[in-house]
């Protein structure tokens, strides 16, 4: 059924992405590609990967924006990972004519049944966030699964049961959890940092949240003090060094 869940469980698994921390290294995109190309919606087909115009399916992309405040005369660079937000009112689900696109009742993950997808691409038109990509090779749509084959995998140690992008982020900019539970770590993080949804005016009610960059400390913006030079005097140097110093200083 491509109608949205009638009785959602209240669990809303999703990501919290901290734009204050993200350094734009693309590790999350690469590890996403690596895990998912053999995961539930595998393969993430590449076309001409070593050719002049490489193309292929990715679930996660990192954009870099410059944000300029003309009045204050300041600007900042923000690295911005973009992936499926697992919306509560997911328009990609309701437009699907076949029932291939669906939202899970138990945890809110939005998935595609590629066995019945006809590749009409309408879901990608309906999504404001560019979360869906067409696999030209297989003729079906692909999208982020929130690593459903990893987060529930009982064969993995508990700390590994998180989406690949979260596990791999070297900076700790990504968190994963139940955003439907106000007591969860991710919900508290969102609360504390003023996490927000993207394009709320589109009415999709995304689950994922972004944490804003922290404000710059204006006025404190000076280079750190140089350390005092430690080896101006030969005191404490080795015997040979002191002898060389003595000879050359003469």
């Amino acid at each position: 059924m491509t109608s949205l869940p009638q009785n959602p469980s209240g669990v809303k698994l999703g990501l919290v992405i901290d734009l204050d921390i993200c350094v734009g290294c693309h590790a999350c995109a690469v590890n996403c590609k690596e895990w998912n190309t053999s995961g539930k919606l595998a393969p993430l087909t590449d076309l001409e990967p070593y050719g002049a115009r490489p193309d292929g399916v990715w679930f996660n992309r990192i954009h870099t924006f410059e944000v300029v405040d003309e009045e204050a005369g300041t600007s900042r660079t923000v690295h911005f990972p973009r992936s499926c937000l697992h919306c509560e009112d997911a328009p990609c689900v309701t437009v699907c004519p076949t029932g291939a696109s669906y939202k899970r009742e138990e945890d809110g993950i939005v998935l595609i049944n590629t066995d019945i997808c006809i590749g009409c691409k309408l879901c990608s038109w309906a999504c404001p966030y560019g979360a869906r990509e067409y696999d030209e090779d297989e003729g079906v749509m692909k999208k982020c699964t929130l690593c459903i084959d990893k987060i529930y995998n009982a064969n993995l140690p508990l700390e590994s049961r998180a989406p690949a992008c979260v596990s791999t982020c070297p900076a700790g900019a990504r968190s994963f959890g139940d955003l439907g539970d106000p007591e969860s770590d991710v919900s508290k993080l969102v609360e504390a940092r003023g996490g927000y949804a993207l394009m709320p005016e589109q009415g999709t009610r995304p689950v994922n949240r972004y944490l804003p960059p922290r404000p710059k400390k204006v006025g404190d913006d000076v280079a750190p003090r140089m350390l005092e030079h430690q080896d101006d005097s030969p005191d404490g140097a080795g015997l040979l060094a002191r002898w060389v110093d003595k000879v050359l200083s003469a």
Binding site: E66, D69, P128, Y196, E201, Y210, P212
Partner: peptide
């Protein structure tokens, strides 16, 4: 609104995620 960064000023793309 797409990035939620209005509070910091005008948003401009400086690097696309992919070259092609």
């Amino acid at each position: 609104s797409a990035t939620g960064l209005a509070r910091f000023g005008t948003v401009r793309l400086i690097e696309s995620p992919h070259s092609e």
